[in-house]
Design a protein around this nucleic acid. Sequence first.
DNA 1: GGCAGCGGTCAGGATTTTCCTGATAGTGAG
DNA 2: CTCACTATCAGGAAAATCCTGACCGCTGCC
Lengths: 224, 224
Amino acid sequence: MAVKNKSTAQKLLIVDDHPMMRTGLGQLIDNEPDLVVAAEADNAAQAQAAVMKQKLDLVLLDISLPDKNGLELIKDLRALKPDLAILVVSMHDETLYAERVLRAGARGYIMKQEGGKKFLLAMRKVLAGGIYVSEKMASRILETFSGQASGAPASPVARLSDREFEVFQLIARGSDTGAIAGQLHVSVKTVEAHRVHIKEKLQLKTANDLVRYAVRWIESEGKS
Amino acid sequence: MAVKNKSTAQKLLIVDDHPMMRTGLGQLIDNEPDLVVAAEADNAAQAQAAVMKQKLDLVLLDISLPDKNGLELIKDLRALKPDLAILVVSMHDETLYAERVLRAGARGYIMKQEGGKKFLLAMRKVLAGGIYVSEKMASRILETFSGQASGAPASPVARLSDREFEVFQLIARGSDTGAIAGQLHVSVKTVEAHRVHIKEKLQLKTANDLVRYAVRWIESEGKS
DNA sequence: GGCAGCGGTCAGGATTTTCCTGATAGTGAG
DNA sequence: CTCACTATCAGGAAAATCCTGACCGCTGCC
């Protein structure tokens, strides 16, 4: 371990249920003179305890935890310490979670597929008060937001018209196009048109992607 | 890094697409005088190249790889080097993969949730010619061998053949039939046949139901 | 009042995917 | 050896999807 000036180094908390991953991240951080691992946790309960016990500058948080949904934990941590910086570290594709995670209050999202350099970049950016997501994700999010005026946190789903949203929900429940047409008393062609519009608004390419998105959305939105 | 006797230390290959995880495992291994990391790979192609290039004693293999299904890679590696020991390192619950992995030719299965001690135990056991799985999994497998599977009816997904399971995972990831055919280097017709069998085994009626089931399953059990 | 934009409806026709019905061949169990 | 299972593929019918284009009603704006 490198010797550090304990009084000035930024204090990090690593939350991940894979010990080897914690070791890897710890190794990376210990090689930086200005960063120090102040605590580790392998579940949400430990993470909360650690956050309460000491003053921390940054939390590296894996959203796949055994005892609690990562999004919930983000909200809880922010309720406890509104100014605490949180960088989400995840193995899941960013397009699925990044937006959600940011809306929950995290200040960054980085994939485990990234190497040490990107990790350090992300940590420093978040520590400096910035927000870190990949280039691709950043422009994607900006695009989504650009349509409307300030503040209002908009899930792309919110941009669907009422009718489109109806169709969207039915897709998520497993109805095929024909069934949806029947239920809404319109022609199959109309439903097809709605589907096209939904796909445009959600930036989806294939029919399969639409089903996947819809299923996921209904799963997660149903709870929180 | 610890100084080692290079001529006697056992040579390991780490295959994982998460750099931090490789660092963590490498750290663990470097602290052992009798083990050395001979190479690392973050995808299946690199892994195969490494195995061909040098004489290795053990492969630590994450089955969730970007370019190829882990089970396939195990089979390929064993075709190349039948005596090569493979220890699968996975974040997925063992009940889902352990059996499959052993049948494919790996000699051990350990979850990333485990700590360093267990990891070393597993590596040494496999290096010594043994087979490593958790206590629970071991007795479970023995039971299966000795007649009846225990009372708990396993997930119907467990009844899928390896090939079917591969297709199933790709469906969950959003690949359409054509893409799957391309990735597996078989005809579209073959993939269609697999889909039919999967639907039978999971008692699903439509293509949509299959996608929904697959997405849900992958959400709850993990991702590859 | 006119007009542009959007939401909702639908059609025709080309393309793809899915579904149904076989068929062949290897493997492992009994 | 036979049976069951797995993996591979084909032909052709049926269905879903994609592309292009169209009509109507409502809203907001100059």
